[in-house]
Nucleic acid binder design. Structure first.
Lengths: 181, 181
DNA sequence: GTCTATATTCCGATAGAC
DNA sequence: GTCTATCGGAATATAGAC
């Protein structure tokens, strides 16, 4: 049940936003009362923390599985993750929570910071190693390039929601092509 | 008074998000009662529409003023607009409203669509003309490149909120450097 | 145009029974 | 662990006086 709640909360955050969903939106589809949800997650911030923590674990598990691949294929996989979210009508967790950042509890803000650091660190290392192995070609610091890549992926989901999924496809394709050539 | 309300609502949308601010957040700082705000904007969606409309007018007015400049300097100006928002603690309107898109009224969604189309159209034309005049150098279609630029700018503000303003500076600088060289 | 006052609904959260 | 029941508060919105 706890897992079902977190999974559903994750979806709701991505589709409606953290401040726009309620305990009722969790309880009704699971056919329980909102008190049952409060039993597992006393406050909404507790639920938010669990969603972010699970997302970070998913991310670490994924990159762990990709670690034997060439760096450009590792980045392909990351784009695949975003593509799946795009066609599921989701935005990414950062893209949903960052605009609400000022309304969140300090512990949630701290978790979001950690999530951002983790993905920036991984993309930076991926680009750096990939350039060394001649699989990526780009100018400037790998850390700066990583910020560009991450911002492209994040906003591709925001733009896709407004303009349609083609926006994601065009961004994702051009992004990968730029780095490889 | 109507202008004051729209200006304040714009700020609140950018800082807290559309679903996280209330009529009280508008009324209190203006030293009026929430009924006075409802007089000018009967529903919250009416207020949201006015905010988007004013932002679009500001944008059209700006690009009109820039039209005599070289294209790379026009893009500098656009980055300047985002930089000011960054240091004011704001995200851009699209970056705030896109995650909440599914919770908004159809008229608001339509206005957001128009806003997205307008900025994509302008950046595309700017890049296309700039490339023709040898002020920009990039591969691929100008429209695809425009989506990359816009996604960089949008998410630079989201990342800056979480990671600090340096994230914006690094993205903005590398972005402009890529296009010029 | 702004006020007081209120209707209505919903939300997050808790108490206590089972 | 889930339930019923409810508290306290806040939100959007409206009616009617001034």
């Amino acid at each position: 049940m706890k897992d079902k709640i977190v999974t559903l909360a994750d979806k709701l955050i991505r589709v409606k936003g953290f401040n726009a969903f309620s305990y009722k939106d969790i309880a009704d589809p699971l056919s329980v009362k909102n008190a049952a949800v409060h039993y597992h997650f006393p406050s909404k911030a507790d639920l938010g923390m669990a969603v972010i923590t699970e997302e970070m674990q998913r991310f670490q598990h994924s990159v762990q599985q990709w670690r034997q691949l060439p760096e450009d294929e590792q980045l392909d996989r990351l784009v695949d993750v975003f593509r799946k979210h795009c066609y599921a009508g989701n935005v990414c967790l950062m893209g949903s929570l960052a605009p609400d950042y000022e309304t969140l509890t300090p512990p949630m803000q701290e978790k979001i910071n950690e999530m951002a650091e983790a993905i920036v660190e991984w993309v930076t290392a991926c680009l750096e190693q990939g350039r060394k192995h001649k699989r990526f070609h780009f100018k400037g610091a790998a850390g700066d390039r990583a910020l560009l890549v991450i911002s492209n992926l994040q906003s591709s989901l925001l733009l896709a929601r407004v303009m349609g999924p083609e926006a994601f496809d065009r961004i994702g394709r051009q992004l990968l092509e730029d780095l490889r050539s």
